[in-house]
Design a protein around this nucleic acid. Structure first.
Length: 307
DNA sequence: TACCAGGATATGG
DNA sequence: CCATATCATGGT
């Protein structure tokens, strides 16, 4: 008999559920949105769960969440994790204040007010998905993520419908490199993913300790891992830990977004992006999210021209 | 067809 | 320390 948990999660303005989930529905096949309900299967503390999130226009600061498969004793833990995943305790107002004088970025924000990042359910899932996403386009990355999930993960069923659950390290550790290669992962990427999973299983890598570290210290730890460079480490701090002052300045998407938003005649270099980003501190993660969102959904600009 | 994708590593100078 | 080749395929 599975326990059905019903939660009401409240937040403060500015918040827009619709802006926050928009990108999930495009790139992330692990989310499903039907009849105004967002479904997502995830493994928390070893148990595959299904969450169903609904949102109502007449109460835009409350998320109603049903959780299937949870233990009643885990209720508070799950609640805290869901607040983290949906960034419900992230106050955007100081970020909005400091970019108010930056007319170009202010326009980006105006068009997606209340956008907050939706984080990954676990650091492990975030790390593996980020590695898969290295260098390839997001649509191909989503395909590979779905293949890995189908191959190695579990399924949960709710109302007769199946949902895929991203695998845990134990499940990926059992795979062979050649299996992933057959699914169009390149050889090295297959090694990174499986080796990291095995090192987590045998205790040589402990991602949970990263919660205790400052940003730079966490990045230093992460880049020791084969397959993890600075970009991947920064993405883990952004989408896994939910840290607020990361700027992946070498990121090609971020650089393209900045070129477009600021109408530059060339793609800015990593150093130029870093220099620009100084003025967004200590909320550079928020700037990054908004610029990435603007890359996926280009805003209407005056005097805009195609790149 | 060529080139770029929300990179990382191995190798050679 | 910097430059280049390599990866493996989808999108344009």
């Amino acid at each position: 008999m599975t326990f059905l948990l019903q939660l009401e999660l409240k937040t403060r303005p500015p918040y827009s559920f619709q802006h926050s989930i928009r990108r999930l529905l495009n790139h992330h096949s692990e989310f499903e949105y039907r009849e105004d309900v967002l479904y997502r299967a995830m493994r928390l503390w070893g148990r595959p769960l299904l969450i169903a999130v609904s949102w109502k226009e007449d109460d835009p600061l409350t998320l109603s969440v049903q959780v299937k498969g949870a233990k009643e004793a885990d209720q508070e833990k799950i609640k805290r994790r869901l607040r983290h995943i949906f960034s419900l305790d992230r106050d955007l107002t100081p970020f909005y204040r400091i970019v108010a004088l930056d007319s170009k970025l202010a326009k980006v924000i105006e068009q997606r007010k209340g956008l907050r990042p939706v984080l990954d359910p676990s650091l492990y899932e975030c790390l593996i998905k980020t590695i898969i996403g290295q260098q390839i386009n997001v649509s191909f990355a989503a395909t590979l993520i779905q293949r890995l999930t189908t191959l190695a993960g579990d399924k949960v069923t709710w109302d007769g419908k199946e949902y895929l659950v991203f695998p845990d390290p134990e499940q990926v550790a059992k795979l062979d490199y050649s299996t992933l290669q057959q699914m169009q992962f390149n050889r090295r990427k297959a090694e990174y993913i499986i080796d990291i999973s095995r090192q987590i299983v045998n205790g040589k890598i402990d991602l949970e300790q990263l919660y205790e570290l400052e940003d730079e210290a966490a990045i230093e730890e992460l880049v020791k891992i084969r397959g993890v460079g600075r970009w991947t480490a920064e993405c883990l701090l952004l989408f896994g830990l939910g840290r607020r002052d990361l700027l992946p300045a070498a990121d090609i998407g971020l650089r393209n977004a900045i070129r477009f938003i600021y109408q530059l005649d060339h793609q800015p270099t990593e150093q130029e992006v870093r220099a620009m980003g100084q003025k967004w501190a200590p909320w550079r993660s928020d700037a990054t999210f908004y610029l990435w969102d603007a890359l996926t959904y280009p805003p209407i600009l005056n005097n805009s021209r195609p790149i």
